[in-house]
Design a protein around this nucleic acid. Sequence first.
RNA 1: GGGGGGUUAGCUCAGCUGGUUCAGAGCACCUGCCUUACAAGCAGGGGGUCACUGGUUCGAACCCAGUACUCCCCA
Length: 880
Amino acid sequence: MEISKTYNPKEAELKWYPYWMNKGFFASKPNSNKKPYTIVIPPPNVTGVLHMGHMLNNTIQDVLIRRARMLGYNACWVPGTDHASIATEAKVVALLKEKGIKKTDISREDFLKHAWEWKEKYGGIILEQLKKLGASCDWDRTKFTMQPELSEAVIDVFIDLYNKGNIYRGVRMVNWDPVGLTAVSDEEVIYKEKDSQLIYINYKIKDSDDFITIATTRPETIMADTAVCVHPEDERYAHLKGKFAIIPLINKEVPIIYDDYIDKEFGTGALKVTPAHDINDYNLGLKHQLPVIDGLTADGKISEAAQIYVGIDRFACRKQIVKDLQEQGFVLKIDTIKNKVGHSERTDAVIEPKLSMQWFLKMEKISKPALDVVLNGEVKLIPEKFINTYRHWMENVHDWCISRQLWWGQRIPAWYDNKGNTVVCKTKEDAFEKLLSKNSELSIENIHQDEDVLDTWFSSWLWPLTVFDSNVIKNGWDKANEDLKYYYPTNDLVTAPEILFFWVARMIIAGKEYTGRVPFNNVYLTGIVRDKQGRKMSKSLGNSPDPLDLIEKYGADGVRVGMLLSSPAGNDLLFDESYCEQGRNFANKVWNAFRLIKGFEVGAIKQTEAQISAINWFDHKLNEQLNLINDYYAKYRMSDALMATYKLVWDDFCAWYLEAIKPDFIDGKAQPIDKVSYEATLNFLEKLLVIMHPWMPFITEEIWHLIAERAEKDCCMLASWPALKKTDEALLNNFEVIKEVVATLRNLRAQKQISPKEKLQLFENSNNERISLNPVVSKLANLSSFENTQQKTDGAFSFMISNAEFYVPLVNNINTVEEKARILKELDYSKGFLKSVQAKLTNEKFVNNAKPELIELEKKKENDTIQKIQTLENQLKSIT
RNA sequence: GGGGGGUUAGCUCAGCUGGUUCAGAGCACCUGCCUUACAAGCAGGGGGUCACUGGUUCGAACCCAGUACUCCCCA
């Protein structure tokens, strides 16, 4: 069989993904004989396409789930998407616009029809992309947050929380997105630092020539001012008590009020109060019973209430009004300041604080258990540093604005009659009955449902519950179905820190509220994928590579390895394609190791001593490293686990083991290998494939099947994770010395320009039998002989390793000057070392305070070093 | 303004509850090699005042305080 010299990932990817999927290897069903291991995917936005963040996130999930499967768990990874109300609605509106249809011209029902069509056609592309990555999700379980059963659960939750008194409707200052035409939650507002103009405007004082100067960054709102506020202890304004200021241009009188909320230092110390357009002003307004004038329309234009500039956009108005105020002499001066301006996460529009009627969820009580479970470790955050952040948020939690002025989403089940009565229930018929008791003349036609939908997070906070049992809200935990009882609580959640509150906290809240149980035991928080300059990857910057292009270029395995090599939990990943290259190179290395082994010809010959020794060593090495890798996994140190795997394969297996057992060439012909060594090697390779599989599912499966003809279910992905046994530490330490001897000889060749083909003689003078004469040294250093000697060898290159002396007789005389310098340098180092050790041992405080083991260790170091110095001095003498 | 991180090699990061002359890994870099598994490779090598200042200690990259710079979250 001809095997190509470089690994071709595409072939394996096209072959094995469908194979795994069609054989049902990803599928999971409850099985009381097996322990479950469950992950629910953070549902990507249904409009989304795969980006680097998904790539990182989902690779980690796949690694965890594949390893769990190999460890014998019933592994279940539930995929799906969320309906992303704002983003999707925006896409649909845009699409309709292309067709010449305005949203306002069609009915809600028609709009939703278009939206569903859009979703069926384009939604879920991202799930197909995940398959390219190798994601071993149970696709039969794919869910969508707006599918009927899941939506019904959302409505059930709303009704339930309303009935419990946790949901209320009220006029509040919300973050208004004038482009999306909806309220957004606090978490969806991104504050960006901007240079703004701080404009100092003179307001005349009524019945006086005096005036008061206010400073504002938002002059277009002055028409909605209802007071001017100053600090009660500010002497500058003490004389204005009881007076009125006059708003320029519209000549409206507003009172001057006093409140110690005012910062005397900022601006002029006089604040224009605009209750409708600033949360602080709003609170001031409440306190001082000021009227509220809404000077803006929903889409960010100046409203009728403002009297002037009506219908002009808020930013255009800002320019115009400054100009007009200047012309009429009201502007004292203009400063440029830096301030933070809120932007909508979805539309990037400048957020407008706006008073509006919204639905809220009271958070204080309901969130308490969700804080406790994180603090007591029932839910672990990885890395732990996020616990502080989490606590801070949970202790200062605000009520959650859950209504959105959109159509795409679960419509709020609140019903109103024509007399201002409200009921909350599922159907219009129920509503009719309920309202009838309050309003006996009511007819059903006069009932209308709330126009708003619920925040998308208000459905995704149920995700870990409803993907398994959408009836759990109705029925309660005791009547939960088999799936939920078996898979829930899930094991790990892998997500980005930026949605710790948006989503993670709220899932915990919902989990505790509806099952009394947490939704997951561990939350692994990934970093953010940034570009090399540390900028967040974004479409607008165009600095994000397309993950599918990367897969095309480096193979899925290569990209997976590349992404995980350098991303410890919670650390941002400064992405660079060279990581993928490294991943691809690793895959190729594995491929070639396989080619070598596959090329061995098995013959009826005896094992060599070197092979016996190497096999014995690697057996323990693999065991040692597996133990380490398991430990890294247990601590969720993914990149460390990967790096340990990488080095085990590349360094230990390829560079040392395979070189040691590889048969020689004689007369240009590869010699055969004995059966025992061959099988041991294949066995090692298979174990390594298993260990590599979670990171590199495709190549490992491919090689697995190239090793031998396999039965249908004899797949690498279904193989068992290797078991651990006791590691012989002494054996491993000894081999480290062997490596050092070999490295020294290689170095010698390099320095003396001795060809690797030229055989060398090596003599060892030591009583350490474990190092002595190890055949692996002869093999790897290409020795003609390796013997013990008690004699000094004159004119030989000499070196010391671990208190053993070695001599290499050289044909060309060695350079005594160089040798001497080298020995002197080592001697110098050893003497310094000895001094530091002895300093400790003669230090009474050290001897009194340090642990006994430590003192023993220091004594051993002292002895060893004294011996070494002795040997070195002898060597020096023999040279001179 | 409040809270939380971070600062170790050119880059990305390890370094557990202070204890080998402790300063590490991968990549990058330099040198020599197309040695019949692999140049996507092999062998060897250089590289750091552990941000700064002070303190605690027999002993500090690690603990404490302050300074500088930086990132994130919240308002």
